[in-house]
Amino acid sequence: MRAYYFDNLPGDQRLPHDFNPSRPVDPDTLQSIKVESWYIPVEGHEDKLDGVAKERDYRNRDVIEISKNGLGDIYEEKLKGFYKEHIHEDEEIRYILQGGGFFDVRQAPSDQWIRLAVSAGDLLVIPAGIYHRFTVDERNLTRTVRLFKDEPKWSAIYRGTESESNPHRIEYIKSISVAA
């Protein structure tokens, strides 16, 4: 996984949107906002992924493929929904099996976007309460394992009054020692 500051320029969300020269984000910065990642080779990943699931108390998983072929006519609509800034009440844990994309996370308190470029073998944990969004890259394909504590679900709370007063957002801000 490669992390860098998003350039905020208009254009296709599937492009890298990297500054020139790039403005990389170091692991300490990611740790300060509670974003975790590591690499597990796809070949033979099952045991290591099972270990992560057990350690973090995840009981369920599914595999989602985001592609033009897989989603057909609703592909562009789904991409727009994933790319709308939101939070979740559970941490989001994703393991990339094929293809790739970008998770953008908001750095608090600066509110800058950090872009996380992920590809096959990358495992990413995004904490509950952090603003984020997702898009595929120019390959228009990602096949991803999603881990869940309970039944598989994807419930987004889009940025606004409701998200700012959400207890998971408030707890996240406290956990990174940023005044609300």
Rank of each mutant, 00 (worst) to 15 (best):
W154L: 02
G70Q: 10
K34W: 03
M1F: 13
S67D: 09
T29D: 09
G99L: 08
I170V: 15
G100K: 06
T161F: 12
Y158R: 02
D137Y: 09
N140V: 02
D26G: 12
D12F: 00
G101L: 02
I170K: 11
L15P: 00
Y131N: 08
R169N: 06
E43R: 11
L141W: 11
L71T: 03
I96F: 07
K34E: 12
G81Q: 11
A180N: 15
Y75Q: 00
T135V: 13
S165M: 14
I130Q: 06
E138R: 10
R106A: 07
D62R: 10
S32Y: 07
K174H: 14
V63P: 12
H45Y: 15
F148Q: 09
Y158Q: 00
R146Y: 00
R159P: 04
S67M: 08
Q112E: 15
G81S: 13
A179Q: 15
P127D: 10
G121I: 10
F134D: 05
R14I: 00
F148G: 07
S155V: 15
E151P: 04
G44E: 04
I157R: 01
Q31Y: 11
P10F: 00
F148S: 06
A120K: 02
R139C: 06
G51A: 13
V63K: 05
F19T: 06
F134W: 06
S155C: 09
A128T: 08
I33M: 10
G100F: 04
S67V: 05
E171A: 15
Y131I: 15
I40K: 00
R133Y: 02
Q31H: 13
E138A: 13
T142F: 07
S32K: 10
H132I: 06
Q13K: 14
V105L: 04
I130C: 11
V25S: 03
A117K: 14
V42N: 14
G51M: 06
G99V: 05
D62L: 10
D50P: 03
K153P: 09
H168D: 10
P41V: 10
E164S: 08
R23V: 11
R94W: 01
E46K: 12
P21W: 02
I114P: 00
D12Y: 01
R61Q: 13
I173R: 06
Y75H: 01
P41N: 04
D137P: 10
L15A: 13
I87F: 06
L97V: 14
I66Q: 05
G99D: 10
A108G: 00
T144Q: 08
I176G: 14
P27D: 14
P16A: 01
P109G: 07
V35Y: 04
D12L: 04
K34M: 11
E92G: 04
A53T: 07
I33D: 08
K174R: 14
I93R: 05
E65R: 10
D57C: 11
V42W: 09
F134C: 05
L30K: 04
D150N: 14
H132S: 03
A117T: 03
S37R: 11
S163N: 02
G11Q: 01
D26F: 09
S119N: 13
I96S: 02
I66L: 13
R133E: 10
P24R: 00
Y5L: 06
Y158T: 04
I66D: 02
D90Q: 12
F6S: 06
F82H: 01
D7H: 00
T142P: 02
I114N: 00
N20A: 12
D137V: 01
L9I: 11
D122E: 09
L124R: 01
R2W: 05
K153N: 13
V105S: 03
